[in-house]
């Protein structure tokens, strides 16, 4: 993501990136902050049951046609699971 400073990114690319985020918000009624809170809560709940590998976590909001889709890619620490089992 481009920051507030000057970038070499072309303005059309910035427009597209910004629109993607704005449309997610408009369609789901979730702000970026709310989305971040939700991700953390989701991870907290899952962590109560299995140990997750925090570095590999990827939770994203994607557009599929006119639908928004929340995709979570959450790697688990399998060695630990084996030990427990």
């Amino acid at each position: 993501m481009a920051g507030w400073g000057r970038t070499n990114k072309q303005s059309a690319d910035e427009a597209k990136e910004r629109l993607k985020l704005v449309l997610i918000h408009d369609r789901t009624d979730l702000t970026q902050e709310e989305l971040a809170v939700m991700k953390n809560e989701l991870l907290a709940v899952i962590s109560q049951h299995v140990e997750i590998d925090p570095d590999g976590v990827r939770i994203t909001m994607k557009q599929e046609g006119r639908e928004q889709k929340l995709t979570a890619d959450i790697p688990l620490k399998t060695t630990r699971r084996r030990k427990l089992g």
Binding site: Q10, S11, A12, A15, K16, L19
Partner: peptide, 9 residues
Amino acid sequence: RGDMLTPDD
């Protein structure tokens, strides 16, 4: 110039 969204976008 990269300053307008394309129809594809």
